[in-house]
Design a protein around this nucleic acid. Structure first.
Lengths: 346, 346
DNA sequence: GCAACAGATGTGAGCGCTAACACGTACCGG
DNA sequence: CCGGTACGTGTTAGCGCTCACATCTGTTGC
């Protein structure tokens, strides 16, 4: 065991350079090809040779040069991810799921985290990933514009779109936003309210649109007219603004379905500030189930999205594409789940 | 302009293969070396030739093969990041800062996001990054154990540690946790309370220890005895548990300094549930300034850590190391900032 | 008018690895 | 006892690129 990190016992061919297969081969008294075979788990290597090679690898602290490997195999073992603002809980969790699934499958992940979603930015991100030789692409593209930009990328790289709504020809993974919104709205109606107000996400976001349409559908089913939704931008600040308008304008509001938890937090605070009690006076439901939602004041009823599963499924789908399986399920839909807490219980 | 993505006009040497420099060279009527020069911005290329080459590049939709480039230059232009749970706000923001700074400097980033911080996991992550040929490493290592594991990695890869406290020989970037904690404690004392209780983070986290010692120091300066701190694990749930104990045990508690915002959220809810009013009965201060903190009930006074700057500085420091500048500042300290909101104002 | 030079371009080698094939040696049946 | 068939191992070529150097212009100085 080479526990003394200071003294390298092997004599590399050239100093000041990382050891190569040739160095290992020399030390083990075999050819570099045999070293390669050992490292790649090729069957036809005798146990004794394998031992000797592994010992040499350990002694030299040798590690393969993946660039050289990629060059000759024409496979980078790299997957690319294009994502919007990985600081947010949703994308961050999805990305985490992607990373884990990719690693399990023996792939690396290269991430391009964008601040904007215009065509130039996306195309630049794509170029960077293409140069790295990514074998496939996951696009966490929550905005219509991004998908339009992507459509102009006429590359032959397998691609999976996450949370972008349906796109012609592209396979996608997403949470059933409409179903989630209906769950939330239905739940509020079940509490006996006569209607439900909606604080929506920004236009141009398919997720926001889908949640809105689910809310509309469920209200229609219950025979309620849908009031004009308020618009936010996902931020707590915008939720706060919406909450203030709600509290000021209309004392008849009985229930609010907010398009995400962060905005719901803003709404809760605005209502609290205005002396409106939740849930006694108004019921509130959010969307996402961020880890903090259970400790909001009051604990927030919300729709849980399993981002980890979304990430995992997107990699599974992508790997199928890379494997050239001809016809795969073009779309994977993950079902959301209503998590009931006090904010919606009378 | 090749606006029609469907028709590739160039005739690659081999079909079914991405175009290479040779293909571009052929089309432009120059040598592959000239293509290389154009792409690398080498000065001695005539304007006319450059134009022709760029046109060929565009027509073939050519992109460099970075693996081949890395092989010959012996530079991967890749930086590695080892981080703990990139789902959390702090690491996610830091990572984002790192990515941006790295990209600006022309580097790619490969991330190993760990779920555990034992030696085996860290060493595995290190192996994966080393195989990729990372030129430097940023370790977001919030736990003593990780640093110990890292110390056994006897590699010659430049390394910067983020938020790990001081480590012998390793340069580091961190927020001045002690100063932040003192700011928070001082502020509470300034409100006229006679003492401050602390809900601390887990043992083995240097950040938690530093915040605790800052709190101790400031209390000592004010001549107060420091009560035994409560321990949490950073989660809202653990904050809630601490809050309940606080509310139940001691009606004399006037102020609480909580080691992070998530736990503070749990504390706030526990106090609310117990009928303890914040800030009327008890003052609360958190740490981090997550985006939601301004909308907690009540809005939370907290200590802002500029994670983006931390990420950026860590890359700057790392690049200095890679550039073989002999003696760089071994440690960069970013100053935190107190953000006063209602939870701490009588 | 020719050496000296600078700028623009081409040529060859080789980075570290894997794929394909060639080459042993041992063991089998006829 | 020889051809076949394993199996283990070595040899060679080449992935796509950049580096060092060679070459080939055209321009300048004396």
């Amino acid at each position: 065991m080479a526990e003394d990190g200071g003294a390298r016992s092997g004599r590399p061919l050239r100093p000041n350079t990382l050891p190569t297969m040739a160095d290992v081969a020399l030390l083990a008294g075999v050819s570099h090809q045999t070293v390669s075979r050992v490292l790649n788990g090729h069957p036809s290597v005798s146990a004794a040779t394998r031992e000797r090679v592994l010992a040499a690898v350990k002694e030299l602290d040798y590690r393969r040069n993946l660039a050289a490997r990629a060059l000759v195999t024409r496979r980078s073992r790299l997957l690319g991810v294009i994502s919007y603002d990985t600081t947010l809980y949703g994308p961050a969790s999805t990305l985490h799921g992607i990373q884990r699934a990719a690693r399990r499958a023996g792939y690396f992940v290269s991430v391009a985290s964008l601040k904007a979603l215009d065509r130039a930015t996306i195309s630049d991100a794509f170029d960077r990933l293409a140069e790295q030789g990514v074998e496939g692409l996951v696009v966490i593209a929550p905005v219509h514009e991004a998908l339009r930009a992507l459509a102009t990328v006429t590359e032959r790289v397998p691609m999976v779109v996450v949370e972008g709504g349906a796109v012609r020809g592209l396979s996608s993974v997403s949470v059933d936003q409409v179903a989630g919104a209906r769950l939330a709205t239905r739940h509020l109606l079940d509490q006996g309210v006569s209607s439900v107000v909606h604080v929506a996400g920004p236009r141009d976001w398919p997720e926001a649109e889908a949640r809105m349409s689910g809310w509309r559908r469920e209200l229609a089913l219950a025979g309620c007219a849908a009031p004009t939704p308020l618009r936010g931008d996902w931020s707590p600040a915008s939720g706060y603004a919406a909450g203030r308008r709600l509290a000021a304008a209309d004392p008849s509001v009985e229930a609010v379905f907010v398009a995400n938890d962060q905005m719901a937090l803003g709404v809760l605070w605005a209502l609290h500030e205005a002396g409106v009690r939740v849930p006694a006076d108004v019921l509130v439901v959010g969307f996402d189930d961020v880890p903090e939602a259970a400790y909001y004041v009051p604990p927030l009823t919300t729709v849980r999205q399993d981002f980890a599963t979304v990430g995992q499924r997107s990699i599974e789908l992508l790997l199928h594409h890379i494997g050239d399986r001809p016809s795969e399920p073009p779309a994977v839909v993950v079902q959301p789940e209503l998590v009931v807490r006090r904010s919606s219980l009378r």
